[in-house]
Nucleic acid binder design. Sequence first.
DNA 1: GTAACCGTTGACTGTTTACAGCAAGTATCG
DNA 2: CGATACTTGCTGTAAACAGTCAACGGTTAC
Lengths: 110, 110
Amino acid sequence: MTIRFGERIRELRKAKNLGQRGLGELVEVSFTYISKIENEKLDFGDYPSEELIQRLASVLDADVDELLLLAQKIPEQIRKRVMERPDAFRKFADLDDDKLDDLLEKLDNG
Amino acid sequence: MTIRFGERIRELRKAKNLGQRGLGELVEVSFTYISKIENEKLDFGDYPSEELIQRLASVLDADVDELLLLAQKIPEQIRKRVMERPDAFRKFADLDDDKLDDLLEKLDNG
DNA sequence: GTAACCGTTGACTGTTTACAGCAAGTATCG
DNA sequence: CGATACTTGCTGTAAACAGTCAACGGTTAC
């Protein structure tokens, strides 16, 4: 569960039998940049741009939201809904884990 | 309810009987920048930095989260919780308004 | 009319970001 | 050994970002 963004990219890349150069070409960035991403050694920030993450997810057949979350970015769908119903999400955000679980349960049933 | 960020700042400023120059001094930016903010005429983006928004809220005795939301930014508290429990928030985000209201009601009761 | 005040706007500056690309090194593997 | 893949420090760059500054226009008030 403590998987890092960089590791996950590497994992997905290998699952596709790609080298960093191959992946770099597919998403149109240099292979050295891919290396830095996988090792989380970028000059600033720890993660690449949201745009690049989208391309990575697409090329690697991965779940965009999973990658975005690993990169500490809020998935678009959630972001959109928070903007539309801030009242609701503010309350949800104030709940502790137990209460959140209660709510999820109620969703599955009722 | 379709109030814009800029309008809201102007509203709050006037409620405090401040001119743009006065507000500018209080939050330590030039008054011309305040003007652009109120008219949403910034060179890029439509809103100032999160940091400045915080200072504005503070000086204007306004709710930070309200201003952040108007500026299309996710309040920190919500952001933090989404990262901690993405599973839950993903599900909430998929709900339509009615279902969200149901959940809120359940929160108020039991 | 002109002074004093208030707000608007365009051009400009400094910083940060998101990469590129080289060079020199390490690791691995046949 | 040599080929191939990956790592990493450095320098460079273009675009985005956050704000400043000078100049200007509109009121009111004397």
